[in-house]
């Protein structure tokens, strides 16, 4: 597992200060623009990044991420580009944890072993794979951990208590809590009962909890941050990027991320 990510998350839990993990789609709208966005987020104080690899059939994603990933694919983005992005960030001196978000088939074709080697060599910290169920976790988890990489388990509002418990015993740096019963996408309001559910979960689970899906702005992030150990924002950032001139992407992303980081500090 990634010791740095592990330590950061453990500290967040201990200090009750939620961390910010923004998502960017590699190659959207161009490779360089996604690199600029990633840098801007790290400059603004993001704790770690989730870097999405575009896949032709992203079943967990809503319209915003579908469009962005399809655009990126049509622009000629390849799996290799996520490793290239990580290498570029490391070359520029960023040391924050970098996680790759990918659908399972891409990794299966590369093989877990090769994926782990390539990710480690690039300087990445782990993987988030939404269609890899807990039942199939063991083997890839071991392969990744041999390279010092983490595999992040998901839990959802529909997860049974047994499954939540099983996720909690994976020794992961955090659990990815899917805040809504649904696909990714910015939403006007937080899911009903979310804050209470998170509060209860945090008391029960020893693994820190990071919340994603449907968190759209700094205020919502602040609310969630009071009861979780970290917050992921994806679609809202992608929407922002889609509406921004390429030359301005870094600036706009930095501003947005700085607001979220501020809110989380003071919540």
């Amino acid at each position: 597992m990634s010791q740095q990510l592990h330590n950061l998350m453990a500290a967040a839990r201990k200090n009750k200060k939620a961390l910010f993990l923004p998502y960017f789609c590699v190659g959207y709208p161009t490779f360089n623009a996604s690199l600029a966005a990633a840098e801007a987020a790290l400059e603004a104080g993001a704790t770690a990044l989730e870097l999405g690899v575009p896949f032709s059939d992203p079943i967990s994603d809503g319209p915003t991420l579908q469009k962005a990933t399809q655009f990126s694919l049509e622009n000629g983005t390849h799996f290799e580009d996520v490793f290239r992005l990580i290498r570029q960030l490391r070359m520029r001196g960023y040391e924050q944890p970098l996680l790759v978000m990918t659908y399972l088939n891409m990794v299966e074709q590369m093989t877990w072993r090769k994926f782990a080697e390539t990710l480690e060599a690039a300087g990445g910290d782990g993987a988030i794979v939404p269609d890899l169920p807990l039942e199939e976790f063991q083997e890839p988890k071991v392969i990744l951990s041999q390279k010092g990489l983490s595999l992040i388990p998901f839990i959802a509002p529909t997860s049974s208590p047994e499954r939540v418990k099983k996720a909690d015993t994976q020794e992961a740096p955090f659990l990815y809590y899917v805040s809504v019963t649904g696909v990714t996408g910015a939403r006007k309001t937080l899911a009903t009962g979310l804050l209470k559910t998170l509060g209860d979960l945090r008391k029960k689970l020893k693994t820190p909890i990071v919340v994603g899906f449907g968190i759209s702005n700094a205020d919502q992030a602040g609310q969630v941050g009071r009861v979780a150990d970290g917050v992921i924002i994806a679609s809202a950032l992608v929407q922002l990027i889609s509406k921004t001139k390429i030359s301005q992407i870094g600036k706009k992303v930095e501003l947005f991320c700085a607001q979220v980081v501020q809110k989380l500090k003071h919540s």
């Binding site: 890899l132 199939e136 529909t158």
Partner: peptide, 14 residues
């Protein structure tokens, strides 16, 4: 075969 679905749907398959 197998059951490669997002966590949200695991309960429905069960």
């Amino acid at each position: 075969g197998g059951q490669y679905v997002p966590e949200t749907l695991m309960v429905a398959h069960r």
